[in-house]
Simulated assay, not measured.
Amino acid sequence: MSDHIPLVVIALKTVTLVVGGLITYLAVKASQRTEIDGLSVLAVGFGIITFGSLLAGVVDQLLRVDSATALVVENTLTAIGFCLVAYSLYVTKRQSLPE
C-alpha cells in the first residue's frame, strides 16, 4: 500500500475531528447547564468516537502499524461511542418520564 495519503482523506479526518470536538463540547455545556445525566453520557460517546478517529490516524501514520490494525482501533472506539450515544438517549428518555 502507498504511504501517500490522499488530500481528501486528510480533509475528511480534519472535518471529523473539528465537528466531533464541537459536538462533544456542546454536549458537555448542555449537560452542565441542564444537569441531565444522559447529556454527559452523550458527550462521552461523541468524545470516544472523535478520539477513535484521531487515534486511528496516529496509529496508522506515526506508529507505522498496518492499516488493518488502525481500522480495527477506529471501528472499536466508534462502536463503543455509538453504544454510549444510544444509551444516553435511553437514559434521557427515562429521566423525562413523570414519576
Rank of each mutant, 00 (worst) to 15 (best):
M1E: 09
S2D: 13
S2N: 12
I5T: 15
P6K: 13
P6D: 11
P6V: 05
V9C: 03
I10Q: 09
K13D: 15
T16M: 08
T16P: 03
G20K: 00
G20V: 06
G20F: 05
I23D: 03
Y25A: 14
L26D: 01
L26Y: 00
A27T: 01
A30P: 08
S31C: 09
R33W: 09
T34F: 11
I36A: 05
G38C: 15
L39E: 10
V41G: 02
V41F: 02
L42M: 14
G45V: 06
G47E: 04
I48S: 07
I49V: 15
I49L: 11
S53Q: 04
L55W: 00
A56R: 02
G57E: 02
V58F: 12
V58I: 13
V59G: 07
L63F: 11
R64I: 05
R64K: 07
V65K: 02
A68P: 03
A68I: 15
T69V: 15
A70Q: 06
L71C: 03
V72C: 10
V73F: 08
E74C: 03
T76W: 01
T78M: 10
T78K: 05
A79S: 14
A79L: 14
G81N: 01
F82Y: 11
F82C: 05
C83K: 03
C83F: 13
C83W: 03
L84T: 01
V85L: 07
V85G: 00
Y90D: 05
Y90E: 01
R94N: 02
E99C: 13
